[in-house]
C-alpha cells in the first residue's frame, strides 16, 4: 500500500518522467498499472479513466512492434470532463498534425497496441476521411466515447485518429471482434455521431487480420469522399 502511495506521489510530481520510462522499457514492463487518476472536487467524473497517447512514424521506415511501442508517448491521463478539455485544448487538431501522426485515446490501462490483453481478441471499425473533415469528426467520436454514447458496456477500448498523406482515418477499437451485437452497435453509433450518409461503407478489421496482413484481402472499399485510396496503411507498422 505504501509503495502505491509513493508511486502516486512520484507521478503527481512529474508525469512525463513516467512516460519516458515507458518508452525505454520492454513492453512487459508497461503492463504494470499506474495509480488511479484523480478527479478534482467539482469536476464531472467520466465513467472510465482514459489516457492520451501520441505516436509518429518516421516516413519510409519499416515499422515493427518494438519501434511502434517506443514511439508511443503518453500525453496525459484523465477521468473527468474538465481534465479532458484541459488536455484536448492543448493538443493540436488533427488537421494541423504532420502526416504519419496518430493520437490515441484509450481507456486507462489499455495500451493502444494489438498485443495488449484487452485488444488481442478485438478489432476496430475504420472510417476513412477526406482531408479537412478529421478535426470535427474526431471530436465527435471522442465526445461520444467519453460520454458513453456507444452503449456497449465495457467493450470500447479506445479511439485513434491517424493522419496520413491523403486521408485521415478514425478507428474505434473494441475488445471482442466476434461480438456482432457490439460491433454493429458501435458502427451505428459512429454513423450517427459522424453524421455519415447511411450508405457509407465502413470496414471492420480484427486485430488478428491486422497482424497477419499488411494489405487487406478485402476489396477496395469506397471512402467517405472521392479521392483515390493511397497505398499508405494505418497498420503498416507491423
Amino acid at each position: 500500500m505504501s509503495t502505491m502511495v509513493n508511486k502516486y506521489d512520484a507521478l503527481k510530481g512529474s508525469e512525463d518522467s513516467g512516460e519516458e520510462d515507458s518508452s525505454n522499457r520492454e513492453p512487459k514492463d508497461m503492463d504494470k498499472p499506474l495509480p488511479p487518476v484523480e478527479v478534482k472536487p467539482g469536476d464531472h467524473r467520466l465513467q472510465f479513466a482514459y489516457a492520451i497517447w501520441f505516436s509518429r512514424r518516421a516516413p519510409g521506415k519499416q515499422a515493427t512492434t518494438q519501434n511502434y511501442d517506443q514511439n508511443l508517448k503518453l500525453i496525459g491521463r484523465f477521468a473527468s470532463v474538465e481534465l479532458f478539455w484541459g488536455y484536448y485544448s492543448r493538443l493540436v487538431r488533427p488537421a494541423d498534425l504532420n502526416s504519419h501522426s496518430d493520437i490515441h485515446i484509450f481507456k486507462d490501462g489499455i495500451k493502444p497496441m494489438w498485443e495488449d490483453s484487452a485488444n488481442k481478441n478485438g478489432g476496430k471499425w475504420i472510417v476513412r476521411l477526406r482531408k479537412g473533415l478529421a478535426s470535427r469528426c474526431w471530436e465527435n467520436v471522442i465526445l461520444a466515447m467519453l460520454g458513453e454514447q456507444f452503449m456497449v458496456g465495457d467493450e470500447i477500448c479506445g479511439a485513434v485518429i491517424s493522419v496520413r498523406f491523403q486521408e485521415d482515418i478514425i478507428s474505434v477499437w473494441n475488445r471482442t471482434a466476434q461480438d456482432n451485437t457490439t460491433t454493429s452497435r458501435i458502427r451505428d453509433t459512429l454513423k450517427r455521431v459522424l453524421n455519415l450518409p447511411p450508405n457509407t461503407v465502413m470496414e471492420y478489421k480484427t486485430h488478428n487480420d491486422s497482424l497477419n496482413l499488411t494489405y487487406p484481402c478485402l476489396p477496395l472499399l469506397p471512402r467517405y469522399t472521392g479521392l483515390p485510396r493511397p497505398p499508405l496503411r494505418y497498420d503498416s507498422h507491423h
Binding site: 503527481k12 512529474s14 508525469e15 512525463d16 512516460e19 478534482k40 467539482g42 469536476d43 464531472h44 467524473r45 467520466l46 465513467q47 501520441f54 508517448k73 503518453l74 500525453i75 496525459g76 484523465f78 470532463v81 474538465e82 481534465l83 479532458f84 478539455w85 484541459g86 488536455y87 485544448s89 492543448r90 465527435n140 465526445l143 461520444a144 467519453l146 460520454g147 458513453e148 454514447q149 455521431v193
Partner: peptide
C-alpha cells in the same frame, strides 16, 4: 453509467476548471 450528451460536454469546455492547464503536460 455516467452518460454525457455532446452538448453538455461542450458547455463544460470553457469552464474555468477545463481551462486550467493540466500539470505535467509534456511539450511535444
Amino acid at each position: 453509467r455516467i452518460i454525457y450528451e455532446r452538448n453538455f460536454l461542450m458547455q463544460l469546455r470553457n469552464s474555468p476548471l477545463a481551462r486550467t492547464p493540466p500539470k505535467n503536460l509534456p511539450v511535444i
